[in-house]
Design a protein around this nucleic acid. Structure first.
Lengths: 226, 226
DNA sequence: TACTCTCAATACGCCTGCGTATGGAATACT
DNA sequence: AGTATTCCATACGCAGGCGTATTGAGAGTA
């Protein structure tokens, strides 16, 4: 989209960044195979001659596109949550938003699918490691030890990645965005992926409704056992 | 490996199934791109002439390989758990084993990475849907309603998929198989992915160790809140 | 206007994979 | 043995992508 030049016969010359952005767009909707010189040139309305003036080869373009992506990606999809003061609410929000939106995930999925390429793998690893690190901080902020925070972060990021895949490959298993099942599942996730702090308030920890056993809320009272 | 014929100059002719198996092997260690007629022929020590006698085209080989995979995959990785009588222990075991072994996952990951191909996507969808369905049954067997079982199954399968990806793309984030952190994380997963049944025994549900608050065990007592 | 620098078009050769056509060797059949 | 059938090798044409070399058009500058 943003790759096709404003008007089809725009006389403006192309910049290297224009090529990089076009490559990213191509990744988003055709995967890594979309990053091919001649097809991209056609899409941009030019020929290879342009490309090989700006870049030495395809690899260079890919690298540049990945760098561009990594910049844009830094903080995403966890951005705009730093101003959330309550650490517990911040975790809830990140769980909710990350498993709701699909915005930036297309490129990530395409890159992850091509992680056999060492260059791509390096970027994917960096970005994901940073994300897990962020989650780790968030979990520590609610009072967990580093070890426990690591486990929760790992779990939550697994769920995020797995959910992406489910939504892509088994859409039938994913509730429609405006259904009640959808909001219920998100609430379910928030509970499953948040360490309970009720134990901090022993008066609330007593099972007010024993009949609620096995209603499907996550791992009640597991904390009391070990 | 099993694709290379027994002895390098074995005079035995090839069967279509040999090609299909070779294709699966190629998928496992080169991805879908490994399913290419001429490279496969070289690997098998023959030429294209053989291939195009057994198959009409590349697509046909891929289809056959996928069918072969789907058969072998049916029940895996949840097989050999049907004889586990205690439904709760069965879930524990499936969570443990699925997130421990990597056996059959290489092909799955390669296929999932190539899910832009509609043919491949169809197989991936079927296999994964069946797996989720199995998990759903397992969760119902411990007493959950169909709705809640669906959510738990979806969550657990997400974790499985996401964990696969983490182990492949961010191995540094995954504890070494024989470390104590590894076994601790698996135990953590078992708790996080299993609905608590302590609520069935209200006498145990009382927080025996309130000091255990925020130790990192999953979502204690969430069941008592809604 | 002449000159230079930037960007792009054209044309070419290379490689790799797909699919076809045809002939030949090995095996099975009678 | 002779024939037919099964399986494979060889040779070919085609397509698409990569990278190079060369030419050319436009814009800026003196």
């Amino acid at each position: 989209m943003s790759a096709t030049r404003d008007t089809i016969n725009d006389k403006t010359r192309l910049s290297a960044d224009a090529w990089a952005q076009a490559a990213l767009d191509a990744i988003a909707d055709q995967g890594i195979a979309g990053v091919a010189v001649e097809p991209l040139a056609r899409r941009l309305g030019v020929t290879k001659g342009s490309f090989y003036w700006h870049f030495s080869n395809r690899e260079a373009l890919l690298k540049r596109a990945l760098e561009r992506w990594e910049e844009q990606e830094t903080g995403v999809p966890f951005q705009s949550l730093e101003n959330e003061t309550d650490p517990r609410r911040r975790l809830q929000r990140v769980i909710r938003e990350v498993n709701t939106s699909l915005r930036t995930s297309r490129i990530y999925q395409a890159l992850s699918a091509a992680a056999d390429d060492p260059l791509i793998a390096a970027f994917v690893t960096r970005v994901s490691t940073r994300r897990i690190e962020t989650l780790r901080h968030y979990y520590q902020a609610v009072g967990l030890s580093p070890e426990h925070a690591s486990r929760w972060a790992r779990l939550t990021y697994s769920v995020f990645l797995g959910t992406l895949q489910i939504r892509r490959d088994m859409p039938a298993e994913w509730p429609h965005t405006d259904s009640t099942e959808f909001s219920q599942y998100i609430a379910f996730l928030e509970r499953a992926l948040l360490p309970d702090d009720d134990a901090m308030n022993p008066d609330l920890a007593a099972p007010a409704h024993p009949g609620a056993a096995l209603t499907g809320t996550p791992a009640a009272n597991a904390a009391t056992k070990s």
